[in-house]
Design a protein around this nucleic acid. Structure first.
Lengths: 246, 246
DNA sequence: TATGAGTGTTGATCGAAGTCAACCAGAAAA
DNA sequence: TTTTCTGGTTGACTTCGATCAACACTCATA
């Protein structure tokens, strides 16, 4: 039973053309006169409680989702129970693109906190993007960006050592918080050490130790999930100049 | 100076509607009456010599490429010289999707053997896919498939041990050769141990040792780049039932 | 205020894969 | 034919991160 909340008149006032996430989200770069046409694209919103799935592996693919509030992780489960977190998503980012290829979702999307998403009917998106060039182009960009991001993660997982991976992760989070108008230096992680570890191909103990080492070296101040970056240059150096191992 | 070969009358006879790679490539699933409209999409072909780049990181993005003959690797280079191979591509597969997001290519595409690609002008592809629903949908599927594939690689890199990674790699190659009408059991790898290693996040010595172990265990017969799979079930078992490490 | 579950930190030990190095095979060049 | 080069294999040794285990902190709820 999906908890899809039907659209109310009040909700409709806050559709794409009025949304403050515009410049991060799907409609970015569209001509003003086209923006209002998006308003009927977002057919509904859905609230997802912390730890609950937005969709699961094997679910029928019908829509993609734009995050309005909150954050998510996506993961793939292997038969033997191993989990690989494939990404963390924040407001304005798009979820569900994995489902287009087979009409079934190929990963789980789990809310890291109570969250709300815009439900974008996929057939209507295809339809509308045949009419609105800017939408089509932006949609392609969003998919392409996802591919480029994934290549970055492969770089992380394939050729970096533990501390480099964590440094890259922290800098990436910082940059994404900045893009949303939050502090680049101080933020709150919504995921556990285990989830970070899974994403980075490390065990939670290794993540914890790397955090401690960064703290000892004065690069960051860590208090559980609360992170303060003290020396972002130092973190960058760690990635670039670490002797080439692996 | 790009070695783009201009289209000749003879070439045009072999465009999409006549191409034997149809069911693997972009036009798959399109209505017959629309297929001929693709024929002016492939504006040119390009031949790429072994070891030569089809495009490089930072190159302006103008087109995507469908592989007609041969094969490629894509890789990302870090400032300090580390290389991460992000994928191996075979006939019928699409290259260049990484470029859409920033209008610049974000990786290198290098021919593993003398190869030929169809050059698909990206602006014309967008234009045509606004007119031809089947093309639009298939293009989206191709991008989505790339995302799903990347998640699979993250799973490999993040949660599997060396032998599991190589087993998964061999099974994947076998499956793709099969889809192209070649033997599932016997094939020729076009990439070096080092390239396989980079893709799998391992050193070439580790790849070599894993090959030797597989050979000792009677799973495959290895002779340099020539591979014969003797027990594909055994390889599959290796992936699924390996005690959960990492 | 206890109690307990979930999450995070730290230490000791172990092992898979990396590193370094020698050697081999096949292909191309001399 | 020999030489050279690139790519592949194998062995000895090292090391980074995994594993196992103990303990600390936070926050609900009894």
């Amino acid at each position: 039973m999906k908890s899809t909340v039907p659209v109310t008149a009040a909700d409709l006032k806050r559709v794409c053309s009025q949304c403050n996430l515009l410049e991060l989200c799907l409609p970015f770069g569209m001509a003003d006169q086209d923006l209002h046409r998006l308003d009927d694209l977002v057919a509904a919103r859905r609230k997802i409680k912390r730890q609950q799935p937005l969709y699961r592996t094997g679910d029928l693919f019908e829509a993609i989702y734009a995050i309005r509030t909150g954050s998510f992780k996506t993961d793939v489960l292997l038969e033997d129970g191993r989990e690989q977190v494939t990404g963390f998503q924040m407001t304005g980012e798009i979820l569900g693109l994995d489902g287009i290829s087979t009409e079934l979702h190929s990963c789980n999307a789990i809310a890291l906190e109570d969250s709300e998403v815009c439900v974008i009917s996929y057939p209507r998106l295809e339809e509308l993007s045949r009419l609105v060039e800017g939408l089509q182009h932006q949609f392609h960009k969003v998919m392409s960006r996802e591919i480029v991001r994934d290549h970055g993660v492969m770089m992380l997982l394939g050729s970096m050592r533990a501390e480099e991976r964590l440094a890259a992760f922290l800098l990436n989070m910082s940059q994404r918080f900045t893009a949303r108008g939050f502090s680049a230096a101080e933020f709150h992680l919504r995921m556990t050490r285990e989830e970070i570890g899974s994403y980075l191909g490390l065990k939670l103990e290794t993540v914890s130790r790397a955090f401690s080492r960064f703290q000892d070296e004065g690069l960051v101040a860590v208090q559980q999930k609360h992170i303060r970056i003290l020396d972002s240059g130092g973190l960058k150096n760690l990635i670039q100049h670490q002797a080439g191992l692996r």
